[in-house]
Nucleic acid binder design. Sequence first.
DNA 1: TAAAAAATTTAGATTAGTCTAAAAATGAAA
DNA 2: TTTCATTTTTAGACTAATCTAAATTTTTTA
Lengths: 216, 216
Amino acid sequence: MNTFTEENYLKAIYHLSTQSESVSTNQIAASLHTKAASVTDMLKKLADKELINYARYQGVTLSVKGEKVALSIVRKHRLWEYFLVEKLNFKWDEVHEVAEELEHISSYELVDRLDEFMGHPKFDPHGDPIPDKNGHFKAHELKPVSALLVNTVGIISGVREHSPAFLQHLEKIKLVIGKKIKVCDINSYDHSITLLLEDELLYISRDVANNLLITI
Amino acid sequence: MNTFTEENYLKAIYHLSTQSESVSTNQIAASLHTKAASVTDMLKKLADKELINYARYQGVTLSVKGEKVALSIVRKHRLWEYFLVEKLNFKWDEVHEVAEELEHISSYELVDRLDEFMGHPKFDPHGDPIPDKNGHFKAHELKPVSALLVNTVGIISGVREHSPAFLQHLEKIKLVIGKKIKVCDINSYDHSITLLLEDELLYISRDVANNLLITI
DNA sequence: TAAAAAATTTAGATTAGTCTAAAAATGAAA
DNA sequence: TTTCATTTTTAGACTAATCTAAATTTTTTA
């Protein structure tokens, strides 16, 4: 099996890979709050284990084997988040750190039974898709609210930013997963947006609109 | 906080302390499947952190602080075992290893909510008491079946041996927690015992009788 | 109570993961 | 296309946890 640390590297590479094809040493270092030199050391080890494709100075991609491991970590993370919110009544902004630990519990039996216990949920509390035991998942077709035109509607279905501060803010203004919104006005000066949310008008900044995702 | 390894040492010392007042280096080494030299190194570290009382060559006891940590690990371990059996339908012989990992998840919020979710259970699936969040628990007054006299009765309430093999054996002969038994005969040659269990006669070896605990 | 046996500790290495500082490779700009 | 800045890697060191082998202390026993 892989160590806790190796799993965290694979997960980081997986998430960074959704942004750009190949992932750089510095990107990984930033995302794991570590130093480039440490990343290089680990990349050598992961390459030896054939979990990544790595050539010096050229960045990395996950191998098929590495992606499988990464997806199993992501699956565990998101299932635990769902459990924490749905069964233990945690708030959606409180679950990330605990899930960061729980995702490394090795038993596949455990995660599969947990999945069953909860009725095979398809999305975690932040709207991110939960891979099944084979690593397959279907993502929503998501757009940031900022990409909507005036008078169009959407359903809040995810976030691009996962910080507790952002999540708490959304919670406070009742912009949570599942709610239906309509764009009423876009301010041409600062790109802030006026939304209609359950018969109430709501003003959000461009920043919030960029990080809040909807399905149509 | 303490490392995973430190927690395992504290837990081992805690369990060994229930047998003998002071715990020896070799006892710890045996229980953790490690070497005496490694134990000595760790004991120095734990003593520096004031988690144990340690004098060279004299064995160790837990400090008040160390016992608190140990009890919190035991609490987590037993609550998770309860969860696995009661909510996820694991068998009582399948939960130990998974709980060995889960007990190191650091969040106290998590374990307290889990406790509440399950209705504050007082005993784990093997009959061992679950400490509350302050480390308090009331143990059953337990006796091994081998200590009973002929024609006395008892209720299966715990095990002294936790190996899957032993637990599976008990399950197979239906000697599980909560069942009422009566001692019908004690063989004077090999000390094997004939029990009455739900109108059926059952023969158990001295070894089984020693490791199966009852309340009266 | 002295010698032998057992238990424990120390000394010195090893591995995983990390770091800083210096060297090397890459890529951008003049 | 040479120079400069940036990125990445290497070199060497550190910490936590472990090990083997040797030394020391305690306990047993004769």
